[in-house]
Design a binder for these strands. Sequence first.
RNA 1: GCCCUGGUGGUGGAAUUGGUAGACACGCGGGACUUAAAAUCCCGUGAUCAGUGAUGAUUGUGCGGGUUCAAGUCCCGCCCGGGGUACCA
Length: 920
Amino acid sequence: MEYDFNAIEKKWQRYWVEHNTYKVTEDPSRPKYYVLDMFPYPSGAGLHVGHPLGYIASDIYARYKRLQGFNVLHPMGYDAFGLPAEQYAIQTGQHPAVTTEKNLNRYREQLDKIGLSFDWSRQVKTCDPKYYRWTQWAFIQMFHHWYDNDMQKARPIADLTAIFAREGNAAVNAANSCRRTFTAAEWNAMDEREQLTLLLDYRIAYLADTQVNWCPKLGTVLANDEVKDGLSVRGGYEVVQKEMKQWSLRISAYAQRLIDGLDGLEWSDALKEIQRNWFGRSEGAEVYFPVKGLDEKMLIFTTRADTIFGVTFMVLAPESEWVDKVTTPDRRQAVDAYLEQVRKRNERERLAETKTVSGVFSGGYAVNPFTGTEVPIWISDYVLASYGTGAIMAVPAHDSRDYAFARHFDLPIIPLIEGCDISESSFDAKEGIMTNSGFLSGKTVQEAIPAAIDEVERRGIGRRKVNYRLRDAIFSRQRYWGEPFPIYYKDGLPFTVDEKDLPITLPDIDAYRPTEQGEPPLGRAKNWTYKGFPLELCTMPGFAGSSAYYFHYMDPDNTERLVSEKAAAYWQNVDLYVGGTEHATGHLVYSRFWCKFLHDIGLVDVDEPFKKLINQGMIQGRSNFVYRIKGTNKFVSAGLKDQYDTTEIHVDVNIVQNDVLDLERFKAWMPDFADAEFILEDGRYICGWAIEKMSKSMYNVVNPDSVIARYGADTLRLYEMFLGPVEQSKPWDTAGIEGVHRFLKKLWSLCCGRGDTPAFTDEEPTEAEYRILHRTIRKIQHDIETFSFNTAVSTFMICVNDLQDLRCSKRRILEPLVIMLAPFAPHIAEEIYAAFGHDTSVTDARFPEADEKYLVENTFNYPVSFNGKTRFMLELPLGIDAKGAEEAVLAHETGQKWTEGKTIRKVIFVPKKIINIVVN
RNA sequence: GCCCUGGUGGUGGAAUUGGUAGACACGCGGGACUUAAAAUCCCGUGAUCAGUGAUGAUUGUGCGGGUUCAAGUCCCGCCCGGGGUACCA
């Protein structure tokens, strides 16, 4: 019987659908396991061979867990709101929902062919009102909560207004952007409008004037993680800083919890580090500096309080509110000119000019609280308004930026560390002995930092302070294709829609562009009102819908809640999450924040959404080239190209095999090449190659459908895993695929026979055969648990090669092997499993257990020569300790099997299992 | 600049975490079967040197040192690639 993968795969894919094989329900009698993939944005291009890598890996793990008796939740859905569909809509006038639906069906078709074990009955689409009502609902909750820094959790706004009415806001330790202090009496005297305006500064979802990343080309604002090097991540368009009234999420309130939560997660250290850097915790102090001629004191933030004796000037951010207060009349003109110059620069110019120093003297002076010295106050854009207090004390001797500034404007530099050389650059290292520093002199820097802060606190001129780099997430997008805000405006103040009126569905509009008045596209909608009041015109950003979708999979049909208490209690959180690193500072931060918020308001017990995370690597393309001799239509093989003057041309990798060009298909590929001539080497045309991004323009896109048509889904799955570690980025090279395909054919002929070869038998296996099997079980189990799927495939290959050498077609060996293979190659496994006489799916089988009896290796030794002596390494069975090892050595010695004419001089016990014996 | 990562044959990659480096696979070379091809199977394959030969010797995990009976793996100092971040005080 031939291995007819096409028929087999079709048959079993139909079987799985008909039998609802992958449908899961809560089953308290079994332990749960939740395996999740980052859901895809269905683009028009469909899947290429790189996309399923993570899906295959997670599918293997999900199927493995199922074989171990876990009740596995393994759902899939679509991140369907987003820019590309909208831009396509702008160009064509077609509703984004239509294109999205089309793309999504194409994705589904491709995914189905790979044999993934998703429970599609739980599908979640972010653009579905049934789902996005919960995104809107969460936003309403964020609007009605504030963050209590003392309790480190979100609390209802009603608690806050009660506190305000009782004692004002002075003593409230809340995450806020309020610049005003008021008493209870003042609060109670305010009208509702004033109170609501103030509360916006405390809400977790709040509306405020903020400096935002505005992308004129996309016509929308972007979050920090959507901007890189001053350009939009999507499209690469210019981004400028602009002040706008925008919705934001007070994610910065959660900074410390987001940092602390990382410790308990099984994520790669690299990824945790990326997030830690993004949150950017830094410990230091806030210190008040008196300002000459003013009663108010200027607050600065520093991590180097120990260097306060070296302050020779102060610097304000251009946007700082202090600029106006300290600028003297004679400096006004110069300051205004500088501010204007700063305003005009866009983000990219700013980044490009980080090395050039610019600034202006304000005319004002501050007083060093420790030395009493008056120091000038400067204004420069190297100080950021959005970090710390927007003002710094400059210590040019020990900060490279202050140093550059001081050198440029010829300001004094006072060294504070014994023996440091500051002739060329500042001495930034936190080491050495302090000098010129009053009471700090003689201390090491490490001692001086806390000592200085203690003194600041003792004098009451400042306090310890931790700052975070993490900014609040800007949540408004001036776009159509996203979740509408459940917000309406009354007299310009925002109010939330009643929860019972959710979802607020996206209205149809006639065009997807901004209105003539420059309003977002929703400005075109007719009757875009709620109870007669205008609704918000912005929509939510891409990350809104992806921040809690994993909870809705647990309970997808629930119309009362995002997830029921029962389902949430059973499924808890995601045990294994698989996806790319590109979401490290976006989706993976927002989801963690969102989950913590839902936890705070009591919706879910868990505080972290994703326990274990695997980042699959990117699959790059492997491009092929042909070399056309200039001015001709003659192509020269890669090995001979140096002899001619040639042009390198990308050639479709689908007409090249193992770098050998299919000449006929090449001629048919493009009209230009129909009459091409070739200069061959060894009778073949060899193409050049390079690793590049997989893209249409480089003709290196391989799509899974063509691979499946040729080799089958099982081969594709095995090969994607065999290519290398899941986490690693690697090029797709179809060259090696024959190897894994051959392996499946070998397995097939062992089990089902080939030609006149007999199929499996029910004979009792030999000891040697059992040893092969159990060694394989142990290894495969280890490989799967450590995500070494590439070595797992090798392990299968070795096992089948060994069985083939023994001509072993015994069912008692092959059946456990096939069950183990089922997660990797489910279709062939089902077919063989059925051939063994089972009438249930292999999904219901149990993963075999390794029998220790067959794992104990015989004692053996290897001669190794070293420095003229012969050294024997003796490997002992598992579980033998040093004492047992000694006995084994003695036994071995008396056995005299290997010591012919030699005596043991010394026995060295090295690790647990291995003993080195030196003989002469 | 700072913070992560990684560097092993012609290629993708193994190495039980300090124990015969190069598993497995591709590619390549040789052979069997075949009129032939495909398919399948067998043998060889890091480099250099010696030998008719089985084989032996030397060398070998980016570079230079070190620890160890033993280093791809640990330590110190460099070089190169990939990713993150960038006036974050």
